[in-house]
Amino acid sequence: MLMMGAVGLAIARIRDLFAVSMLSGIFSLIGAAAYVVLDAVDVAFTEAAVGAGISTVLMLGTLALTTRKEKLGGGKSKSTTAFLVVAVTGAVLVYGTFDMPRYGDKIAAIHHHVVPRYIEKSGEEVGMPNIVTSVLASYRSFDTLGEVFVIFTAATGVLAILGRARRRREDEEADEGGSDTKGAAS
């Protein structure tokens, strides 16, 4: 996790966007390792596949379409203000953690509402060894349905934003070509 902190700082400092997107992949991979040691194997699996794989590819795709270098400069006063805001927010959040249950606490509130039932009964009621799968697809399938719709909407949105844009530009070019020939004819 300290390594994650180091990579995060590097992302904040480096201005070459290519290196930044590579670093964000590394960041996700270290995060996946952290999930494994924290017993969240399913989550680690997803993070390794998604964060280190797909999102890096998407970032690189965007960089190929835009620029590779971040512009230099950007005002000293702005970064000072930003740092102040961030420091204050962080201090408030750290103050908030003093009421949090300790790390690995068995009697913390979140372990006592519905979770005991998932752990004790899901073997009999759903019949699957992997509790995460049975909660995901059976007990909380409405949630998952919603998430699937979000992914669907995001894909449709990307199609709507980029798929249409390209066609319109081609249309404009065709129009310009058409008007040019018309102008030449008249």
Partner: peptide, 11 residues
């Protein structure tokens, strides 16, 4: 470990 946050974060 508590499976519920794992489910939420997975999605």
């Amino acid at each position: 470990s508590n499976p519920l946050p794992h489910v939420l974060i997975l999605t």
